Computed example of a mutant assay.
Amino acid sequence: MATATAEATQYLTFKLEEEVFALDISKVREVLEFSSVTKVPRTPEFMRGVINLRGSVVPVVDLRLKFGMTRTEKTVNTCVIIVEVSFENESMVLGALADSVQEVIELEPEKIEPAPSIGMQLRTDFIKGMGKRDEEFIIILEIDKIFTAEELAFAQEATQAA
């Protein structure tokens, strides 16, 4: 008799500073080379601006700034990960800046530990878990929980303003 095993999930891994992060591949639409963004006035600092993606205006966010790191600087490896974010029964396309994209990996559920509990003051609900590959931890992000509804509304307004 065959035993039911949980399916491995594919993740796109990328770097922010020296840390490796991952997103469920089902949320990723594509990866673009980072060229330039058009800044939209009066948006939060982590909102770097908007880009034209085949005729559609797409807001671009700097995940390093969102996570309290330094601003992402443009290098030969800097890229924009185009993701689909769900909130309040709607979906929205946005670009997330990353220092570099690594690879697509498969992780079985038993290779993923729960997100660390760091106390009540720090919000970690956007961390789906900690993947382990060899001796390296990979922070698996829940893209739908990184941004508040208010921040996503800002991004939508920026898109419409552009």
Rank of each mutant, 00 (worst) to 15 (best):
T5G: 11
Y11M: 03
L12Y: 04
L12E: 02
T13I: 05
F14N: 12
L16E: 11
E18L: 14
E19G: 01
F21V: 13
F21D: 04
F21P: 03
D24W: 04
S26H: 01
K27S: 12
K27I: 03
V28L: 03
E30Y: 05
L32A: 05
L32M: 06
V37M: 01
V37A: 01
V37T: 12
V40S: 05
R42S: 13
R42L: 15
E45G: 02
E45M: 09
E45P: 03
M47W: 10
M47F: 06
M47C: 07
R48T: 11
R48L: 08
R48W: 01
G49F: 09
G49E: 05
G49Q: 00
I51E: 02
N52K: 07
V57N: 05
V57C: 04
V57A: 08
V58R: 06
P59G: 03
V60M: 04
V61N: 01
R64V: 05
L65W: 00
G68D: 08
T70N: 08
R71K: 13
E73T: 06
K74A: 08
T75Y: 02
T78L: 00
C79M: 13
I81G: 05
E84M: 07
V85R: 02
V85T: 07
S86C: 06
S86P: 01
F87H: 13
N89G: 14
N89A: 13
E90K: 11
S91P: 05
V93N: 04
L94Y: 01
L94H: 09
G95S: 12
A96S: 09
L97R: 02
L97H: 12
S100K: 15
V101H: 00
I105N: 06
E106L: 08
E108M: 12
P109V: 09
E110L: 13
K111V: 04
K111A: 11
I112V: 15
P114I: 00
P114L: 10
S117T: 11
Q121P: 07
L122C: 07
D125R: 08
F126N: 03
I127N: 02
I127M: 00
G131M: 08
I138G: 11
I138F: 04
L141K: 10
E142K: 14
I143R: 06
D144H: 10
D144R: 07
I146F: 01
F147R: 03
L152N: 04
A155P: 08
A155H: 09
Q156V: 14
E157S: 13
A158Q: 12
A161V: 03
